[in-house]
Design a protein around this nucleic acid. Structure first.
Lengths: 158, 158
DNA sequence: CATTATGGTTAAGGTGCTGTACTAAATTGG
DNA sequence: CCAATTTAGTACAGCACCTTAACCATAATG
């Protein structure tokens, strides 16, 4: 007979498998315009710039947990490819505000749309479950999220 | 007032945030021996080799969804670094069976231990919830996993 | 006002991947 | 049986993305 502990373990493993699958989905390149593609990383950076009106290089670096150097290189590439505009910030001569070009906007929309479709599909499937079942899921996810946060802060502190 | 649909959406977003956090945790290098480190990728490949007695290059490639070329290169590196042994398979002159060296075993154990610690911690935290609550989580995760599988097979077919 | 902090860049190098082109060994089917 | 195909693995070039280190210029601070 399966103990409660075993059952919990099995369930957690299931969660981790889902996390891995999600990572796989997220790694696929994004098509926009019906003919052009961007890498996942590019799509995410474009996403981050599109979501905020005052994003700068350092902000991107923090957002993605990479060095300023890497963020600078990525932005330079996106500017060169015509996805991103880099304008002097009004209050500073050393800071830039990033925004999307028309083409960058297309990528942003394609990404939003893909995400929205997935979300709608999941909502439809989970609609079969009761409010209280969903509530239980939320509470458990909260507990799991808290554990992950602890692990993350543990490890990054070292 | 929040509709059920909104609530589901919020909960799914929570799940995706957890998936992202998990990805972050999984990207951290693994320390073994109290002084040496391997990259996440190396640890995972070592893990896969340690789990199976008859793993070969092609098997690794399939397991990780990469090309045989990439798997070959990774194994060559691990052999060079002294983590992995590559022996002619008994039934074939073109196939190799991979196994762990003593040093590779240390990495394997360190990985198992770290994973075990995390799992134990999560089990402890989730122990506060009832059997039926956990069961609900499992059922929901199952539904979510099925959706992800569909998305994956959709996208990889294209 | 000198010092330090902040925002950003460049250059060199590393990891891990793909694609292409290639061996050599095993399998198959006429 | 043996020619054609498939399977296992490799070498090399090149790409995406990252880091470290050294560096400017501007802004903030004591």
């Amino acid at each position: 007979m399966e103990t409660k502990e075993d059952f919990i373990k099995t369930t957690i493993r299931q969660l981790l498998r889902i996390a891995n699958k999600y990572a796989l989905v997220e790694e696929l390149p994004l098509r926009f315009n019906d003919r052009e593609e961007v890498t996942t990383r590019e799509a995410h950076v474009i996403q981050a710039i599109g979501e905020s009106t005052e994003m700068n290089i350092t902000g991107l670096a923090n957002r993605f947990g990479i060095t300023k150097s890497a963020a600078s290189q990525m932005v330079a590439k996106l500017v060169k490819k015509g996805f991103v505009d880099k304008k002097q910030a009004p209050h500073s001569n050393k800071e830039f505000f990033l925004s999307l070009t028309k083409k960058g906007g297309q990528v942003f929309n394609a990404h939003e749309e893909a995400h929205g479709k997935d979300l709608a599909y999941l909502v439809e499937r989970l609609g079969a479950f009761s409010f209280s079942q969903i509530a239980t899921l939320a509470v458990l996810l909260d507990a799991i999220g808290a554990v992950m946060d602890e692990r993350l802060s543990d490890l990054t502190r070292e």
